[in-house]
């Protein structure tokens, strides 16, 4: 099933075969359909694989600069508080170059929803190390595996954001292994914004078979390793 808010003429997508974005964007599309918010939603895209969704939705979208999706969408929300504002970013745009803006937006409790796709590397540029790269994981800039003594341990984004945010934030992590869970958390995150409660953030553990150089089975085996490093669940749910 293809979400109603997808542009059928934009299929097949620009994403690589087996990319986790397919599952994530279908989940987002289903939520937008179910909450009937396509007309008042705006999706900001980062520079990275998220930009490949630029003409996928029958929803206003805008490509920003790398790591700058959160501040642009926060600014937009200030101007148009009645809109539903989504910022789609990756582990680089969110936890590296854009970390400062992301943390401060969370800290201010900006009423936006940030969806961060974590595939443990920088996909669009060919698979370099990200803050979320696992120990010993091979990437283009860690050819013999990530040395955590020199480059740091895997980055726990939602955990840090949890400490910075107030009690009205919604923070969760899901894996694409369970698309229904992804959908559930995205819906709760968006509702947190619509009900005017607080900053909402969902990290989604995803896959990149092209840069991981894995087939379907190996892809999901590696996803399991990622799931062990980054526990799924709702870290803050405002209930």
């Amino acid at each position: 099933m293809i979400p109603k808010c997808f542009k059928k003429e934009s299929l097949p997508t620009y994403f690589c075969p087996g990319c986790g974005y397919g599952i994530i964007l279908k989940a987002l599309g289903n939520v937008i359909d179910r909450l009937e918010i396509s007309q008042r939603s705006v999706i900001g895209l980062d520079i990275g694989c998220s930009l490949l969704a630029w003409d996928l939705f029958k929803v206003d979208t805008i490509q920003t600069h790398h790591g700058r999706t959160t501040p642009v969408m926060a600014g937009f929300k200030f101007a148009k508080p009645e809109s539903v504002v989504l910022a789609l970013t990756g582990d680089g745009g969110g936890y590296a170059i854009g970390l400062q803006a992301l943390l401060h937006s969370a800290h201010r409790n900006d009423l936006i929803t940030v969806i961060l796709v974590n595939n443990t590397l920088y996909g669009m540029t060919g698979g370099q190390m990200a803050p979320t790269t696992l120990p010993k994981e091979i990437t283009e800039t860690t050819p013999s595996g990530r040395n955590t003594k020199k480059t740091g341990l895997p980055f726990l984004g939602p955990e840090i954001i949890k400490i910075l945010t107030n009690k009205h934030a919604y923070i969760a992590r899901a894996s694409i292994r369970n698309p229904l869970k992804v959908e559930e958390y995205i819906e709760k995150a968006i509702k947190n914004q619509i009900h005017g409660k607080g900053f909402s953030f969902v990290e989604i553990l995803s896959v990149c078979p092209i840069n991981w150089k894995t087939d379907a089975k190996e892809t999901f085996d590696f996803l399991e390793k990622i799931e062990q490093a980054y526990p799924s669940g709702e870290l803050k749910s405002n209930e």
């Binding site: 805008i62 920003t64 600069h65 700058r68 501040p71 642009v72 969408m73 926060a74 600014g75 937009f76 929300k77 200030f78 101007a79 148009k80 809109s83 400062q100 803006a101 401060h104």
Partner: peptide, 21 residues
């Protein structure tokens, strides 16, 4: 809005003017 740095200030301006302000 006081932002955390000038880069975010500039991008915040962009967000707001996209919304017509």
């Amino acid at each position: 809005i006081q932002t955390e740095d000038e880069t975010s200030a500039g991008f915040g301006v962009i967000g707001a003017l996209l919304g017509g302000e």
